[in-house]
C-alpha cells in the first residue's frame, strides 16, 4: 500500500480536510495526518477495522457507504478519498456523485481488470482472474463491480467528472513509463484525482 500512500499524499495540499471512505485500519489517514497535517475522518463498516483506527488514534465513523453521505454537507471536505473501495460498493455511480458533492476533489484508486495478466488468465485459462490486487475467488470476492481503466474514464466522461491527475502502477506497484503509456493494458492499480466540471 506504501506507493499508493505516497502518491496520494503528494496530491494533497497540507492542512486540508479529508474524508476517507472505507478507511480500513486508518493507515492512510495516519500517514496524511503525519505528513500533510490533514484533519478529517475515516468511514468504515467493519468493526475490526474500526477498532484498529481507534487504537491508532484515527478519527473513524462507523458507517455504511451504501447509505450515502447524507450526514456530510456540500463541499465540507477538501478531498474525499476512496482507496480500493469503489469496486466493492453496489451504488458506484451514486457514491461518485456523493464524493464530489461532499468533497471539492475526489481521489479514487482501484484494481484494473484490464491488466494484461488478468486478460491472459481469462483468455488462456478461461478462469476469472486472481492476483495480488484481486486476491479473491469469484465466489468469495467482496468486489461487486469489476472494471478497467478505460471503463472508468468512460464513466467520468459521461458524468462530466474532470480527471485532474492520473497515475497507474504496474504489477510491482511501481510508477513506470510503460503503464503511463498503455495504462489499460499494463496498469494493475489506477489512481485518480477528480474534480467537478
Amino acid at each position: 500500500m506504501r506507493p499508493e500512500l505516497e502518491i496520494i499524499s503528494a496530491w494533497i495540499a497540507p492542512n486540508t480536510r479529508v474524508l476517507d471512505l472505507g478507511c480500513g485500519d486508518g493507515a492512510l489517514l495516519a500517514y496524511l495526518s503525519a505528513h500533510r497535517h490533514v484533519s478529517g475522518y475515516g468511514l468504515e463498516i467493519d468493526t475490526g477495522n474500526l477498532l484498529a483506527c481507534i487504537r491508532a488514534g484515527v478519527n473513524v465513523i462507523h458507517a455504511d457507504l451504501e447509505a450515502g453521505l447524507a450526514d456530510f454537507g456540500d463541499g465540507s471536505f477538501d478531498y474525499v478519498i476512496m482507496t480500493q473501495t469503489l469496486q466493492a460498493v453496489r451504488h458506484t455511480e451514486a457514491l461518485l456523485d456523493e464524493m464530489l458533492r461532499v468533497g471539492r476533489q475526489g481521489i479514487v484508486t482501484f484494481p484494473s481488470f484490464g491488466f494484461w495478466r488478468y486478460r491472459l488468465q481469462i483468455a488462456a485459462q478461461g478462469l476469472m482472474p486472481v492476483g495480488k490486487t484481486l486476491p479473491y475467488q469469484w465466489y468469495d470476492t467482496p468486489n461487486v463491480h469489476l472494471f478497467t481503466i478505460r471503463d472508468f474514464e468512460h464513466l467520468c466522461q459521461r458524468k462530466r467528472i474532470a480527471i485532474l491527475q492520473r497515475t497507474v502502477l504496474d504489477h510491482a506497484h511501481r510508477i513506470r513509463r510503460g503503464p503511463q503509456l498503455w495504462p489499460n493494458l499494463l496498469g494493475e492499480i489506477a489512481l485518480y484525482r477528480l474534480g467537478r466540471t
Partner: peptide
C-alpha cells in the same frame, strides 16, 4: 448518537463513532 456525530463533524470537531451490535 448519529445526530451528535453529524453536529460534531459539521463543527469540524475531532470525533469517532461506533455502533456496537
Amino acid at each position: 448518537s448519529r445526530e451528535i456525530v453529524r453536529a460534531l463533524v459539521r463543527a469540524g470537531r475531532e470525533t469517532s463513532y461506533a455502533e456496537v451490535p
